[in-house]
């Protein structure tokens, strides 16, 4: 058991409050597509030369929202010493398969290509996403070399990340074929495009050498069943990869245990609970090393 020492912690909090990370907004990683392919850089203020980095991929069914939904979490991770790139990507209908995968991979390549400028260790980069973003993070963790996913952006392609944190991510799209968002992402039904469903399903792409993965999921998630995260964990472990599931009772897809344990709060994802934050920082320290 790690003993709790509140006074040093409070001192650190005060110091941290005076040392807020710098934010560079709307940096284009692929200038051809305007705001759709920009990212926000959250840079910890420090002299450390090579820090681990986190590329954050927002959710929204591949067709909604933007990097703004991850802004607070990005700033908190940067406050912990990670260089954070919080990305936009082209949304459906512009971003149907394989465009969203290509954009996400291009953003990952951007971070590695600019590692020296950003103070990043290019060999310590994690992908972090929720829902659709969790799907993309896990998919690029296991299939970054998929020919369909190679971007034609100036940054080019890149290899798999060194770690993945996926919250409530669809891992087997064939199981979710009735979901309109999946249909629109793939561009057709399962019986029409079975090979696309397979290529875009992280569970079907697991192979030896996959990066360690933390899968966070609410047990009451009605959009993406938690069994998908457990199946992914088991498949990863079968090939020798460190994979773990954080299951949260009382959490759905966008509803979670409240600030008071007797209530429920909206919008709280299973990735944005105290338990999930504790798991995230422990996992990042174990896989990327402390900043």
């Amino acid at each position: 058991m790690t003993p709790t020492r509140p006074w040093p912690v409070l001192l650190l909090l005060v110091v941290a409050a005076c040392d807020a990370p710098e934010v560079r907004r709307d940096v284009p990683y692929d200038p051809r597509h305007g705001a759709a392919t920009t990212l926000d850089l959250h840079l910890p203020d420090s002299t450390t030369a090579e820090r681990p980095a986190i590329v954050m991929i927002h959710g929204g069914g591949w067709r909604s929202f933007s990097k703004d939904v991850y802004d607070d979490q990005a700033q908190r991770l940067a406050g912990a010493g990670y260089v954070v790139a919080n990305i936009n990507y082209r949304l459906v209908p512009d971003g149907t398969y394989p465009v969203v995968m290509q954009d996400s991979l291009c953003a990952l390549a951007y971070v590695r290509n600019h590692a020296a400028e950003l103070g990043v260790d290019p060999d310590r980069v994690a992908l972090y996403g929720y829902s659709a973003g969790g799907h993309l993070a896990a998919l690029l963790g296991v299939a970054a070399d998929e020919p369909d996913f190679q971007p034609d952006c100036a940054e080019g392609g890149t290899g798999a990340p060194q770690a993945v944190i996926a919250g409530a991510g669809p891992m087997d799209l064939a199981e979710l074929e009735s979901a309109q968002a999946v249909y629109e992402l793939i561009g057709g039904r399962l019986d029409e495009l079975p090979e696309r469903y397979e290529r875009a399903s992280p569970l079907a792409r697991v192979a030896a050498g996959a990066p360690p993965m933390l899968l966070q999921h609410g047990e009451g998630d009605l959009f993406v069943p938690i069994e998908q995260s457990y199946a992914m964990r088991d498949a990863l472990r079968a090939v020798g990869t460190d994979a773990r599931v954080l299951e949260l009772a009382g959490a759905g897809h966008v509803v979670g245990p409240g600030g008071s344990p007797g209530r429920q709060d909206v919008v709280v994802t299973s990735q944005d609970t105290p338990e999930a934050w504790a798991a995230t920082i422990g996992f990042l320290d174990a896989t990327l090393g402390a900043p």
Partner: peptide
């Protein structure tokens, strides 16, 4: 002490 404090507002029900 690894993470800075986070503050957020939201709706709650019970």
């Amino acid at each position: 002490g690894r993470l800075p404090a986070a503050r957020r507002a939201g709706l709650t029900f019970g």
